[in-house]
Write a protein that binds this DNA or RNA. Structure first.
Lengths: 163, 163
DNA sequence: GACAATCATATTGTACACAATCTAATTGGT
DNA sequence: ACCAATTAGATTGTGTACAATATGATTGTC
């Protein structure tokens, strides 16, 4: 526990104060992000299970509640996912009776995703989810908002680099 | 573009200012987190590919560079992952020659994960990764640190609820 | 010392996630 | 009209991620 100058902890690489600290898990923003995402996903699970949704499906439904019908690629852009992820996800949601997938007559390459009545009505059942999760987070609203803004700013910077 | 009082945007459910706003993707901390994690993972990919590591494997290696040998469950606790995820991941890392997996003689239920020389030396090659990613983030160091702290605080609260 | 309970890991099944590739349809230039 | 380039989805293969279950070892109790 005492950080004495006696070198009782052998550092495999000669590294007084550089790389070893840089590569510590607890010092990584990326790991904090990774761990937080995993925990949030797990916090959603019991809330979404009664609705028959997984967490990515819930995000897709939110995107569709905002705007539907819309194409697969439009949805993919909103969620930051590609067709390899969305196609099977949407097929499962179609099998669950939440959405329909129909080819666009105007451009047969496009597939339009539309909500079914069941899918639309699920919004009412989902209305309590954000509040329930906010309770689980147990953070003041403004703290949540500032964290969200910081993450969105970071995302904007990363998005700018990839195009 | 003009937010006039004329109701030109029909809201499917009667919802003047409540659920529709709550369920908007852009208002969700969870989606900001989800999207940011995906983007960060993608930002790491080109940096880790030369090392032959995926992003979760890189996290596992960081945990092992800090402390090895350690058991699968110990590693799982550090990373927030269960054995169902770690076992195949560690087997791939074993196949890549980075770690060894050996049963503990004292308690045959345990599997000790140890770094190979190749795994240990990979640390030197990984030394530049955190800096390269910090450049990609293009954020002042103190902003990164405060974001990391905020995420760790949130994680602590979520972890407290599940035990 | 048998034996139930517990613990550590592995296995199985389902669900994301993405790179690479394929197919088919549209568009643009000639 | 033709053909190259582009675009939209689907498919395939690899790699996480977790719930549920199985297997085998250890511990506690009698």
């Amino acid at each position: 526990m005492s950080p004495k100058p006696t070198a009782d902890r052998r550092t495999p690489t000669s590294d007084p104060q550089g790389v070893a600290q840089q590569l510590r898990l607890d010092n990584q923003l990326c790991f904090a992000l990774y761990a937080a995402t995993g925990l949030v996903t797990r916090a959603y699970r019991p809330l979404l299970e009664p609705l028959g949704l997984t967490y990515p499906q819930y995000l897709a439904m939110m995107a569709l509640w905002e705007k539907a019908p819309r194409t697969v690629s439009d949805l993919g852009e909103a969620l930051g996912l590609d067709s390899g992820t969305l196609t099977p996800l949407l097929k499962r949601m179609e099998a669950a009776g939440l959405v329909t997938r129909t080819r666009d007559r105007a451009d047969e390459r496009r597939v339009q995703i539309e909500l079914t009545d069941k899918g639309r009505h699920l919004k009412d059942a989902a209305a309590g989810v954000p509040f329930a999760l906010a309770c689980a987070l147990d953070m003041p609203g403004e703290e949540i908002a500032s964290l969200r803004t910081a993450l969105q700013d970071m995302a904007r910077k990363l998005r700018g680099r990839e195009e």
